[in-house]
Nucleic acid binder design. Structure first.
Length: 411
RNA sequence: GUGAGUGUAGCGCAAUUGGUCAGAGCUUCGGAUUGUGGUUCCGGCGGUUGAGGGUUCAAGUCCCUUCACUCACCCCA
């Protein structure tokens, strides 16, 4: 009997864990609201073309990590590997940024990437996503980074490192790219096989290679800052100045390169040392070319994606609080078998008064009910005649009360 | 896709060089005791040792295959 188990890379967030997730999402919602970001729900699947064009044909995601299938209508559909393209699609489709308006949007939910699972990496994983669309200025970049750091601050994450870089725009990146190709071509024999491949398809990513030899070669590679156009340079300066003004520490990393093709100008990551190899809890940046790549009109944007699975791991690792575990306040015990029905009626009435209450519905013995009830704040003993006895567990005081009196006491 | 490690009751674990080894603890359920109540005691449920082959008189223990998990590469959140 081959029992069915969850597909590789997926997992169940069980009741013992789920409250942590709820806490993080609830906190995120509060922060978003304080920053005036509005929640948006978008589809979990989109036309494959959106990601192929938006994320980039040469990205690893599109090349080998997408869950793509043909639906019954013959359409090529893909389970979203990231959220930004979908949010952008929605903003364009619904004219959220018509007439020079901007939109501050956030969302959360599952993403899908066919990768080999490891710590902090799953095939179905969850992201909290924030996007600021319609603003080209550096203030938006600063707002987005500010937002992510405020979220982590409220969640209590410690020892985070903010890394930023500029990857240029459609004007200056091609120039830099040429310089890189020229440089790396002179050092072909020192590069690893994947980097030789990257040289053809996406030379920027060679900078990111962790192999020792490639790293050495990359160290002496042309500096992107020497190639940035004036606009990009200026933009980057403003972002850095803004972060400093807000009192955020950050590190420049000229070798920080995004795996997704749509990024322009600002790229940033927030790293944690408590995650193992997959050390990014948050990654993002500006993507002024995404809208056009997705077939829309020009619409600048900047945003981040925050890995929920990873945030929870780091919080556990650092002993952060997940708030109070929600738990019923009172257990209604049937004093004997004849009182069972009455206990359920009482419980129902308490619930109508918005008091979290439980009673035994599994036919447990009295003894067992008592045993379970001891972990609740209150116990209510009901007999078959409808008499109620309220006991506060902490001080062991027994009182005979009416239902109304109990409601008044617990509210 | 590549590499390494792991896989025994719901959970975390134990079983000398292959030879009564299929076990205890916690949980759970029932019972006894207690003020019908957190303790203590007794008992029950629970596993063809991930699955499938093979070697052997004998395999949880060795070999092969497969599945899953873990970590790392790759890449990213």
């Amino acid at each position: 009997m081959a029992s069915i188990i969850a597909p590789r890379g997926t997992r169940d967030i069980l009741p013992g864990e789920s409250y942590k997730w709820s806490y993080v999402i609830k906190t995120a919602g509060e922060v978003m609201s304080d920053f005036a970001f509005n929640e948006i729900y978008i589809p979990i699947f989109e036309h494959t073309e959106l990601f192929a064009r938006g994320v980039g044909e040469t990205s690893d995601i599109v090349e080998k990590e997408m869950y793509t299938f043909i639906d019954r209508g013959g359409r090529s559909i893909t389970l979203r590997p990231e959220a930004t393209a979908g949010v952008m699609r929605s903003a364009l489709e619904n004219n959220l940024c018509a007439q020079g308006n901007f939109a501050k949007l956030w969302s959360y939910g599952p993403m899908f990437r066919y990768e080999r699972p490891q710590k902090g990496r799953y095939r179905q994983f969850y992201q909290i996503d924030a996007e600021c669309l319609g603003i080209a200025g550096a203030e938006a970049d600063i707002e987005i980074i500010n937002l992510s750091l405020e979220l982590f601050k409220r969640l209590g994450l410690k020892n985070l490192e903010v890394v930023i870089n500029s990857v240029g725009c459609e004007k200056c990146r091609p120039v830099y790219r040429e310089k890189l190709v020229e440089y790396f071509n002179q050092h072909k024999d020192e590069l690893c096989e994947t980097c030789l491949n990257r040289l053809e398809r996406n030379p920027l990513r060679i900078l990111d290679c962790k192999k020792e030899n490639c790293g050495k070669v990359a160290e002496n590679a042309p500096d992107i800052f020497n190639s940035l156009c004036d606009e990009c340079k200026e933009h980057f300066k403003k972002v850095c100045a803004g972060l400093e003004r807000l009192g955020f520490k950050y590190k420049l990393n000229k070798r920080l390169v995004r795996g997704l093709d749509y990024y322009t100008k600002t790229a940033f990551e927030i790293l944690s040392g408590d995650l193992g190899a997959q050390n990014a809890v948050c990654g993002g940046g500006r993507y002024d070319n995404l809208a056009e790549a997705a077939g829309g009109s020009h619409l600048p944007g900047v945003g981040f994606a925050c890995g929920l699975d990873r945030v929870v791991i780091v919080m556990e690792e650092q002993g952060c609080s997940f708030g109070k575990i929600p738990e019923p306040k009172i257990f209604v015990i049937a004093k004997n078998d004849d009182a069972r029905e009455n206990a359920q009626v009482i419980t129902s009435k308490l619930r109508s008064e918005k008091i979290a209450a439980v009673c035994d519905i599994a036919g447990r013995s009295f003894k067992n009910q008592i045993k379970n009830a001891n972990s609740y704040e209150y116990i209510c003993k009901a007999d078959e005649a409808g008499n109620l006895e309220l006991v506060k567990n902490s001080d062991d005081v027994h009182e005979n009360l009416t239902l109304d009196e109990i409601v008044g006491r617990l509210k």
